[in-house]
């Protein structure tokens, strides 16, 4: 664990001493450390494996709560020891966040899955300090609208990567994503997330706080994000990626969990995976993912 506690002390602000002392002194990922990236990649793959396996068990009548329980158990059984947030599952028009007014509505409910219903599984576990945050969209059986929205979602993976490579500001990228959503006739659903974020920074999670969960976010993750909010703010940046003024800065090097979420008429689809941003480039952490393969075969079939 010594490597995990290697500090990335803040410099250049009068408050640095104070901030460094209250922070948990854990690094966000170093994007040039291939071994470390491999660890992140492993956790992300683990998540997608979990999503695929749990999705395969979904039958009509299963509730969101039961699905989340299955994901938690699966991940715990595979070495997960902490959470950025506990797993989420949304069924039916809850995938489009229809009628969501309070944050508690994001929490798993007793909604039951039916034939033809879309669903989204969203999980963000931590294993040995390495975190992943993924979103997995699917549908039980056939749904023409879901097929369309899912095929449309593929464009965002390319769009976001291209724009980040051009070093456009995060707010710009967000606006371009919005424009594409408008052209496609869909609804932007990631603006319903806390902070209206399309992405957020992830890193190595550690520290002395207990591995507890509060209102579904992991305590250590909240501590990390809180710290980063302060530290980045001092440098005019934010660990949260939205369309707001605080995101009007070029992409910050690091690992970003990017989660475009679009919906049409009560059918929502999202993907979420880690984008590696370096000083002058960017790439998706992993291209060997279910939705990437699905879209590739769609493209090939056209």
């Amino acid at each position: 664990m010594s490597r995990l506690t290697s500090a990335r002390p803040l410099t250049g602000t009068p408050l640095r001493g104070f901030i460094n002392s209250v922070s948990n002194n854990v690094a966000l990922a170093r994007v040039h450390d291939e071994a470390e990236l491999e660890r992140f990649r492993d956790v992300q793959r683990l998540c997608y494996r979990c999503a695929a396996e749990v999705a395969a068990t979904l039958k009509p009548g299963v509730t969101e709560r039961e699905t989340c329980r299955r994901m938690r158990r699966w991940l715990r059984a595979h070495g997960v020891d902490d959470w950025l947030h506990t797993p989420f599952a949304w069924f039916g028009d809850r995938t489009a966040f229809r009628g969501f007014k309070f944050p508690t509505q994001f929490l798993p409910s007793g909604a039951r899955l039916e034939e033809g219903m879309p669903y989204i599984l969203d999980m963000a576990p931590v294993r040995d300090g390495y975190a992943a945050d993924i979103g997995y969209g699917g549908v039980l059986g056939e749904n023409r609208i879901w097929d369309r929205v899912d095929a449309d979602l593929a464009a965002y993976r390319t769009l976001i990567l291209d724009l980040v490579r051009e070093r456009r500001t995060f707010a710009d990228v967000y606006a371009e994503v919005d424009a594409l959503i408008e052209r496609q006739g869909h609804q932007n659903r990631h603006r319903k997330y806390p902070g209206r974020v399309i992405g957020h920074q992830v890193g190595v999670i550690g520290g002395i706080l207990p591995k507890r969960v509060g209102f579904p976010f992991g305590v250590r993750f909240l501590q990390t994000i809180g710290r980063e909010l302060v530290k980045e703010r001092l440098e005019g940046r934010s660990p949260l990626w939205s369309g707001a003024a605080r995101s009007q800065h070029p992409p910050t090097p690091g690992l970003w969990a990017v989660e475009p979420h679009i919906a049409f008429r009560g059918v929502g689809v999202k993907f979420e995976e880690i984008l590696v941003v370096t000083e002058d480039d960017a790439y998706w952490l992993d291209d060997d993912l279910p939705h990437v393969h699905r879209w590739a075969s769609l493209e090939a079939a056209r």
């Binding site: 609208i145 369309r148 496609q184």
Partner: peptide
């Protein structure tokens, strides 16, 4: 064309 396509879904 896009509107017509979406209409066809509904």
């Amino acid at each position: 064309r896009r509107t017509a396509e979406l209409a066809g879904l509904l």
